[in-house]
Design a protein around this nucleic acid. Structure first.
Lengths: 231, 231
DNA sequence: GTCTATATAGCGATAGAC
DNA sequence: GTCTATCGCTATATAGAC
């Protein structure tokens, strides 16, 4: 636990002030799922952290798996709706928007959530983990909602990058998701590996940097399969 | 299990033909760690998949944790040595090499391992998972070896990108790692989300595309904190 | 709606025969 | 070096009192 940015992990304190046991359980679960993993986060630890009884999870959710689903669904819906909302605004202002504005509409909601929402960092880390989770049922909750996002954003990119082949566009979209997920969920690694130079809590700076990096990557000349080397 | 690219997961077949029980255990563990996660992959499942006895893991490795460490160490060492080797070559040919050549030296060994080595895909997925794993002892095995890589490559990038502030360089390095890890470990997601358009097994095409994307991102003009909008 | 007590099952680890 | 049997522990889930 060398890095205070990594684990804001209050073991026995209630993770929220809500009087609602169900909300307390969701908050506690989110926090523990992020830092311990779904498997290691036992119902005993979750209910204890939420100040509730062991049996409370089964009363309110029915099973641990249902709890996981609700933790994911609680934030993913609003997050992706925000993406669409921002993209709508961008497209309303300009029928063929700048690539950087589309990228920002995609990236900003996640980075904002991580910095500004209570428990946002833990949730991002949990989703980051879920992406590589073997359990399809959990991962598919994320991917299900994500299909619409992929459709809307690839269409927007196609319009603003008409010379880019569809296959290459999808790959670049994939690369973009990788950078974003890695940054949102594991930004503290940049802080650690740069010996403190990178500050993952500087929301504006981080967003601007990520948008600029990704925009340049997306706008790069398309890859020719057999390119004649001009050098 | 809709996607055959995702899970080459032969439950009860031996994952290798080696007559060596220890190697069989490492192969079986790697495969199960990738698809089930370290925690869900029980010693019973591992030893059964390896055609060995339950007690074999403790005889050969001493504990499950030691097995995890050996699975990681077996491939990470050669992989990172290969990165350094390629970077040495690039720097020997040109004291101030092109950014794309440095990027390629960083990215290529991983993508090659995923495609060409037996069990490489499973290992990449395992590492991808380990990055976001809460268990520091495992993640630190990866990060430990990675510190040298970060040092060597950021130095190389600094020389070839002299106008880029160090902080921005580290962030871009972080973005690059995110894209690479996401692609190496979860490339099948691109295949799925593009409805089959993206082919994660096309090693040369994928490498070229990733290198081009990342190079453009790294070479983008540095971010000014308060930039005057020229538009 | 919250509690205690417990059922049922799976885990890592180990002892000791072969 | 491989086997069987088992210990000690923790997990999820549930039944039933309050």
């Amino acid at each position: 636990m060398a890095d205070p940015l990594e684990a804001p992990h209050r073991a026995n304190a209630e993770p929220s002030d809500s009087p609602d046991t169900k909300t307390n359980l969701l908050d506690a679960a989110e926090n523990l799922f992020a830092h311990e993993g779904v498997h290691r986060a036992s119902l005993r630890a979750i209910t204890q952290s939420a100040g509730a009884n062991l049996a409370a999870v089964h009363y309110h959710f029915g099973s641990k798996e249902a709890l996981v689903r609700e933790v994911l669904a609680r934030r993913l819906g609003p997050l992706n709706r925000r993406r669409i909302e921002l993209l709508d605004q961008v497209e309303a202002a300009d029928a063929m928007p700048a690539v950087k504005d589309i990228v920002r509409a995609f990236v900003q909601p996640t980075l904002e959530m991580v910095q500004r929402e209570r428990g946002g960092h833990a949730f991002a880390r949990f989703v980051c983990r879920t992406f590589s989770e073997p359990d399809e049922s959990f991962r598919d909750i994320v991917l299900e909602q994500f299909r619409d996002i992929v459709a809307r954003f690839t269409t927007a990119f196609e319009r603003s990058l008409p010379d880019l082949p569809r296959e290459e566009l999808f790959w670049r979209f994939h690369f973009m998701v990788g950078s974003m997920v890695h940054t949102a969920g594991l930004g503290f690694l940049a802080h650690r590996l740069s010996d403190g130079l990178c500050n993952p809590t500087d929301l504006d700076g981080l967003t601007t940097r990520l948008v600029r990096f990704l925009t340049a990557g997306l706008e790069a000349k398309a890859t020719a399969i057999q390119e004649a080397d001009p050098g």
